[in-house]
Write a protein that binds this DNA or RNA. Structure first.
Lengths: 217, 217
DNA sequence: TTTGAAAAGGTGGAAATCCCCCTATTTCTT
DNA sequence: AAGAAATAGGGGGATTTCCACCTTTTCAAA
């Protein structure tokens, strides 16, 4: 058995240069040992059993598999893993989901090396770490919209939503989904009602802003 | 005068940890000297006269002032500056504008240290550097849509567009803009025709995907 | 086993959009 | 000075969306 008082860390982010930065900063902390890295959630999961890290710094939005899903799966396998989310602008939408998935720390990408160390210390002590106004923002959103992420759309509603985004009319969607135009219309109404939007254009805006639809990523 | 054969470089990106990564990689190249960094275009411009870099690695999308605008202004002042754009997913939309603004190199953020050096060598020799399929993608887009960035919207059309995204009806927009609902309708038609979209929902999708409207960033 | 959500479908009407056509002024740009 | 945009406005009609209220079937969870 080797000396076991250093913290084994993994870094997951799709930008190699960013990983380089995090690894460099972490390597300057002598009790930290970077045992692995990955460019997306899927690769991370495949490396997990091999490296068994204590802490993982996890980007939130990545291609292939995003941070939220990766964290859910990883914690299902290794509940003692500490997850620190790496967040950049545009990720605000996912804060709530990331916390529900089990992240115990957040570091803004625009933050510096000190924040990385502070977060690491906190989670290793079993505490959680949320920088500055992040918690405030989050609580504000939740209190404001009442669990705003709980807008759960049914399978059909999601299908209709993406078709709306692509500019199809009810009749065209009906033909593609093999259902009546009237049913599509009903799904449409349900979408507006659930999201609290006023018309299709507003719905599309909302859907993108809340990560309900993507372009490609 | 000091030894003048090292390349003076600046790094502009809103993520401190990412800058750290680029700086670390660059610092391992002995002929390179990192003379400054900035977290957005505005700060970069204010530091430009002080540091007079030969090359700048410039993120494309940043808060405050984005890379395209920063490059335009910087090159207006210092035409001999070499600009290498740092691109991540979602930035594809801006490739064309970035090149028109005067960027002579592109590095994907998911690329590694070698690409950084290759790009640097290329631009210092007066060449331009575009990784792999980036040029192909770009040319494909241009040939496909015929200068797709040249969808230039008038002031009014832009105003109407953002109001459409916010879910307003023609009558409501008319009241806000102090014009007739019929005129708004005409602008609406013009928007659909110019963008080649089929209806308001499709228009919103297109507008966001092409950077015509933003949420906040 | 009942309760409920999801999916499918429907009537009907008011409102809004989309898409042609057209005119007139103003304001930039050659 | 001429032409091209941009802005503003309109008629009219076909299509689509939005909304309120209603039925049936299916399927999973309490």
């Amino acid at each position: 058995m080797m000396t076991n008082d250093n913290i084994k860390v993994m870094v997951v982010d799709d930008h190699a240069l960013f990983r380089e930065g995090v690894k460099f900063v972490l390597s300057q902390m002598d009790r930290v040992q970077v045992v692995g890295e990955a460019e997306n959630g899927a690769v991370f999961l495949s490396l997990l059993k091999r490296h068994l890290p204590d802490v993982v710094f996890m980007d939130i939005s990545m291609p292939e598999m995003d941070g939220v899903e990766a964290v859910e799966r990883a914690l299902a396998l290794y509940p003692r893993l500490k997850v620190i989310a790496l967040s950049s602008y545009g990720d605000e939408v996912y804060y709530y989901r990331m916390i529900r998935a089990g992240a115990v720390g957040f570091v803004l990408k625009k933050a510096g090396k000190d924040d990385l160390e502070t977060a690491l210390d906190a989670v290793m002590k079993g505490e959680s770490y949320f920088p500055g106004n992040l918690m405030r923002k989050l609580l504000f959103k939740v209190s404001n919209k009442g669990e705003m992420d709980n807008i759960s759309l049914s399978r059909r509603e999601k299908e209709v939503l993406v078709l709306i985004c692509q500019g199809y009319t009810n009749t065209e969607m009906a033909a593609q989904l093999f259902i009546s135009p009237k049913t599509v219309d009903n799904h449409r109404s349900a979408l507006l009602q659930k999201t609290g939007t006023r018309n299709a254009a507003h719905l599309v805006m909302f859907a993108i802003a809340n990560g309900l639809v993507h372009f490609d990523r």
